[in-house]
Structures are given as C-alpha cells and as structure tokens.
C-alpha cells in the first residue's frame, strides 16, 4: 500500500536535511510502529506523507497504491485515503466540530465522485462513532479543537479517522498528552479500525502505546534513517535500554 524508497528531504526554508534515505514498505492490514528519539525525523515523515509544503524532497519517491504520492496535493491524498492524526490538532474558531466533520466527509465523497451523505444518515453515523469514543453531542457542537482538552483533541482526531475511513492511517504521537483512561479509549478506537484492507503507521516515543495498539513491525528511526527493524520485542528492548545504541549507530 505504501512504499517509501530512499527518501531524502530537507526543510525548504533553511535547507537543513531531516530525512536521509528512508525505505519503508507497509502492506494492507499491517500496523507499523515508528519509534525514535526527539529530532529523529518522525513528525517530518508524517508531514511529508500528508503533503505539507514546508519540506523539499531531494531524492527518492513515495508510492501510495502504486501512484506517485509526491505529485498529489494534500487534499487529493486525503481523498485517496491518506489520513494523518495530528500530534497538535489545529483550532478552527467558529466552526462547530459537527460542521467540520460533515464538510470534510462530503469534500472527500465529492472528490471521489460520490453524492453527499444525507443529513440523517450522517447524524446517525457520527452519533454511533462518537459514542464509542466517549464524545458527547455537546462537544460536537463546540468549535473544532477550540478549548478542547488534550484528551478531547485526540479523541476528536480518532473520530475523524473513523468517519473518513481512510486506507492509510498515520498517527503522529497520538499518545502524547493522554492520561491512562484516555489512552485506553483512543487505542480501542484505533484498534476498531484495524482491518485487512487498512494499513497504519503509528509514530511514538513510548512502548506503552504499543501495549494497546500492538504493531506487526517496529522500526527505529534515528537521524533521518531507519536503523533497525524488528517485531514487537524490539519496542520492549528500546523501553529497557533507551535509544542510545541506535543514535550511535546512525552517526
């Protein structure tokens, strides 16, 4: 589903190189965890997948279902099934969360040549999915992310993900800012979305998220390169020994 080949990227503004040759293949049904210390390029990778403008690709390619993803605009990628759960979801004042959900869903349906969902159908779907994530109707009436607590923001991200039903989900440090209960609710929400047709890339610092969302493959990213790939056990080892060995390996 996702093939990243020898990806090199730098920040467009100051030309600082962040990614230095990433190779990563994610097949449908798989959950990959990308771990690594601060500044290793994890968030950059997620932004580049989503198409943020601030980066310049100097080498390599990204294929999404065989198509060159780097040629696609961010909204085209979204309509094709790429979803990024943001580490820091953005506030949109005056726009009710419900309104945002409807606009996003219908924009994607339109891009795919489908009719907009009728309001009763939409409401029914949202209500059911919101209930799973312990999101109240009251919260859906509030402006998107404005005054949301850390937990509310992350639950709202997962609600959007489950409503938009993407093919590829990239979760950027979804566990940051969550207490234990919120972590459980969010993880359950993510696990519900695991399916043989859907792939996930879970970016995190910590093993504890992977207790809830159990990955098939674990990668260690350091200084813009994947320095080690393994299974679930690799995450446990990192938890015990830290990243120090890998930081040296990349240097």
């Amino acid at each position: 589903m996702l093939e990243i080949k020898n990806l090199h990227a730098r920040i467009a503004e100051d030309e600082a190189e962040i990614l230095r040759g990433i190779d990563l293949t994610v097949n449908p049904g798989e959950v990959h965890a990308v771990m690594g210390p601060n500044g290793s390029g994890k968030s950059t990778l997620s932004y580049i997948l989503a198409g943020k403008e601030d980066y310049e690709i100097t080498e390599g390619e990204i294929l999404f279902n065989g198509e060159n993803m780097l040629d696609m605009e961010p909204d085209e990628r979204a309509a094709a099934g790429m979803f990024l759960a943001f580490q820091y979801p953005i506030e949109i004042p005056g726009v009710a969360t419900m309104e945002f959900l409807k606009t996003a869903l219908n924009a994607q349906r339109k891009a795919r040549g489908e009719d907009p969902l009728s309001i009763p159908d939409f409401m029914k779907t949202v209500k059911a999915k919101a209930a799973d994530l312990n999101i109240s109707m009251d919260m859906l009436k509030r402006p998107l992310n404005v005054g949301f607590s850390g937990g509310e923001k992350k639950r709202s991200e997962i609600l959007q993900m489950s409503l938009l039903e993407p093919k590829l989900c990239v979760l950027d440090e979804t566990d940051s800012g969550l207490d234990i209960d919120a972590l459980r609710i969010v993880s359950e929400g993510v696990n519900k979305l695991r399916s043989p047709e859907r792939a996930m890339v879970v970016i995190t610092h910590y093993q504890r998220l992977l207790d809830h969302i159990v990955p098939d493959v674990v990668h260690v990213l350091s200084r813009g390169k994947i320095v080690k790939t393994g299974d679930k056990a690799l995450a446990l080892e990192l938890e015990k020994n830290g990243y120090a060995d890998y930081v040296d390996a990349a240097a």
């Binding site: 990024l84 943001f86 726009v95």
Partner: peptide, 22 residues
C-alpha cells in the same frame, strides 16, 4: 489551519470558505 483542512480532504477554496464562515 489550511494544511489541517486540506489533510481532511477540503480543497483550498472549501477550506477558506469554512474558516471564513466560522
């Protein structure tokens, strides 16, 4: 804000319209 809306599938014009209407 624009990037966030685009990532959710809104076109640039839809994103501006949404933010402005808010």
């Amino acid at each position: 804000q624009m990037f966030y809306c685009l990532q959710r599938g809104l076109s640039e014009e839809e994103a501006v319209a949404l933010i402005v209407n808010g």
